[in-house]
Amino acid sequence: MLVSFVLTWQDIEENIDATLQSILDQSDNDCEIILIADKMLESNEQLSISRKYFWDIENIKIVINSSIQGASVCWNTAIDLADGEYIHFISQGDIINPNFISLLKKELAKYDNKEIDVLEYTTQLTGLSDKCIDTLLEKGKIYNLNNEYQPFAYLSTSLSNKLFKTNLLKEFGFKFRRFVRYDMLFAYKVLGQANSYLFLNINEPLEEMNLQKVQYSVFDLVNQWTHILNYFRRIGKFKPLKDYLNYAYYKTMIHIWLWNIKKFDNKLLIKKSANFAIRKFEDKREDFMKNNKAFLETEDERFKEIIKGFSSYMKNLLKLAK
C-alpha cells in the first residue's frame, strides 16, 4: 500500500464529504484512509454517517474519540495505525487531485525504488489566497540531506503538501505536540533524521488547500522556531545547518507569516506582529545579508527585496495598523 491518507473529522456539516470523496475518486486506489472523528458522536444521524463510511468504503480505518482531543492527538493516533509506505495528513476542506496516487507512482518509478524519506509537491491554495505553493529547489532531484542542505532552507511551512515515510516516523517515534500548532516542528524533526528529500517533478498541483483564518494563536507559527533550532542543537546538527535554518526562520517570520497576518484585517494584530518581527530581526539584518549562505544563494527575488528594503517594508505594514 502506497499512501495512508489521514483525515480528521471535526465537524459533520463542514466539507468532510468533499475531502473524503476526493480520496475515493482516485484513479488508483493503492491507499488507505484513516478517518478520525474528533468529537463524541452523540446523535443517531452522526453515528449512521460513521457507519456508512465504515461499511461502504474499503481500506478505511475509523477512530471515534470520546471527546475533542485536537488535531495533534488525532495525527499521533494515525501514525500508530498507518500501514501505507507514506503517510499524508489532510485538512478537512482540502481536495486531493484524482490522479494523486497514479502520478505519485509514475514519478517514484523513475528512481528505481530508491528510499526517499520526505516528499513534497505543488499545492494550489484556495480561500484566502489563490497562490500556488511551489519551490525554489530543483524538482525531481533526490537531495542527500547529509550534505545537501537546501531543503532545510526551502521547506514550505505547510504540512499539507508533504508525504512522510511511515517507517521513519515509527522508528524515531515522531509525534505532534498537543494543544499548540507544532506541525512545522514535526516536519523539521523528521527532516533532521531523514536521509533523502524529493520535490516531485509534477507540474499540476496534487492538492487544493483551503486557506482560512487559523483557529489557534497566529504566533504559534513563529514560536515553533525556538524549538526547531534547539532540536537541531540537541541532535548535534545545528552548526552545518545554521545558515539554512536561520534562512527558513527569517523567511517564515518576515515574509510568509506577515503576509498571512495581513489577511486577518486586524489592526492590533498587524501592529503586534510587525513589532515582533522588527524586534527579532532588525539587529541581525546586516549580518544576515552579508554572511548567510542560503540568502546569498537564494533565487527568491521577492524575499531579497523585502530584506534589502526591510525598513520601508515594515513601515508600509505598520501603516495598515493605523
Rank of each mutant, 00 (worst) to 15 (best):
L2E: 13
S4Q: 04
T8P: 12
N15K: 14
I23A: 09
I23Q: 12
L24Y: 08
D25M: 01
D28H: 04
N29Q: 14
E32N: 08
I33W: 10
I34F: 07
I36R: 00
A37L: 07
K39E: 14
E42Q: 13
E45Y: 14
S48A: 14
S48C: 06
F54S: 07
I57C: 03
N65G: 03
Q69A: 10
S72C: 04
S72M: 02
V73N: 07
A78S: 13
D80C: 01
G93L: 03
G93A: 06
I95H: 06
I95F: 13
I96Q: 09
K110H: 10
K114W: 01
Y121G: 05
T123C: 15
T126P: 00
G127W: 02
L128D: 10
K131V: 06
C132Q: 14
C132P: 00
I133P: 04
I133M: 09
L136G: 00
G140W: 03
K141G: 04
N147S: 13
Y154C: 02
Y154P: 08
S156D: 11
T157C: 10
S158W: 06
T166E: 08
E171H: 14
F176Y: 12
R178P: 01
Y188I: 02
Y188S: 08
G192V: 02
Q193L: 02
N195A: 04
S196K: 07
L200G: 00
P205M: 10
M209F: 13
N210K: 12
N210C: 05
L211P: 01
Q212E: 14
Q212C: 05
Q212N: 11
Y231H: 15
R233P: 02
R233F: 02
R234K: 14
G236F: 11
G236D: 15
F238Y: 15
L241A: 10
K242N: 13
Y244Q: 01
N246Y: 15
T252R: 00
T252Q: 02
H255D: 15
W257M: 12
W259A: 14
W259C: 02
K262E: 15
K263H: 13
K263C: 08
K263G: 09
I270N: 14
K272H: 11
A274E: 03
F281I: 08
F281W: 13
D283Q: 15
K284Y: 05
R285E: 01
R285A: 01
D287L: 11
F288C: 03
K290V: 02
N292F: 05
K304P: 09
K308M: 06
G309T: 06
S312D: 15
A321I: 05
